[in-house]
Simulated scan of single mutants.
Amino acid sequence: MKQRKIPMRKCVVTNEMFPKKELVRIVRNPEGEVEIDPSGKKNGRGAYVSLDPDVVQKAWDKHVLDRHLDVKISDEFYSELKAYVAHQKARKELFENEQ
């Protein structure tokens, strides 16, 4: 059976390449609203961040996503993103331990 190609994306904070499933996509839609895109298919300008709360904190401190998406992002969004990433990382670790 043919091996499937794994899509790779770059984390905008660390500039490291990861498989797409190991990152979370943040999207700025055409109306200028910024939101988390769990499906990775929403319309708009996207930026990827790795599933690590420390990386999200670094993005928050340096306002990396503000520059990549050309929009002012609120602290509430960054705290929501940090909570989402912590939850997803815990889920991933839980499911890896079960196998």
Rank of each mutant, 00 (worst) to 15 (best):
E31W: 04
V71I: 00
E76T: 03
V27N: 15
E16G: 01
K92N: 15
K21W: 12
P7W: 05
N97A: 12
L94T: 15
P7Q: 14
R25T: 01
K20Y: 02
E93A: 10
A83W: 05
E98D: 06
T14F: 04
K2L: 13
M17Y: 07
N97K: 14
K2E: 15
F18M: 12
E76A: 07
Q88N: 08
A59N: 06
R28N: 08
S79V: 00
E22R: 11
M8C: 00
Q88H: 08
K89P: 02
E98L: 15
V64N: 12
H87T: 14
K89G: 04
D54F: 13
K10A: 11
K82S: 02
A86G: 02
E98N: 02
R25F: 06
H68D: 01
K42L: 08
R91E: 15
D75Q: 05
L23H: 07
Y84L: 01
N43W: 03
A83H: 09
D70F: 15
H68R: 11
L23R: 07
C11W: 07
D52S: 11
D61I: 03
Q88I: 00
V13Y: 07
N29G: 02
F77T: 01
Q57S: 10
A86C: 02
K10L: 04
S50R: 13
V24R: 08
A83M: 15
P38V: 08
R28D: 13
Y48S: 13
K58Q: 15
L81F: 10
C11Q: 03
Y78F: 05
Q99T: 09
E33F: 09
V12A: 13
V12D: 11
R9G: 03
G46Q: 05
R4E: 14
V27T: 10
K92G: 06
K10V: 12
R28F: 12
S79Q: 09
K2W: 12
M8D: 02
E76C: 00
V55D: 03
G40V: 06
P30A: 06
Y84C: 01
S79K: 13
K41I: 04
P53D: 00
A86D: 10
M1S: 13
E16L: 11
V85P: 07
R25N: 06
F18D: 11
H63Q: 09
V24I: 14
M8T: 10
V24N: 04
V27I: 12
R25P: 05
L81W: 05
V64Q: 11
D70R: 13
K72T: 00
P53A: 03
V55T: 04
Y78D: 01
A83F: 02
D66W: 10
K62E: 14
Q57I: 00
L51V: 08
V55Y: 08
Q3G: 06
Q88P: 02
S50C: 15
P19F: 09
K42H: 01
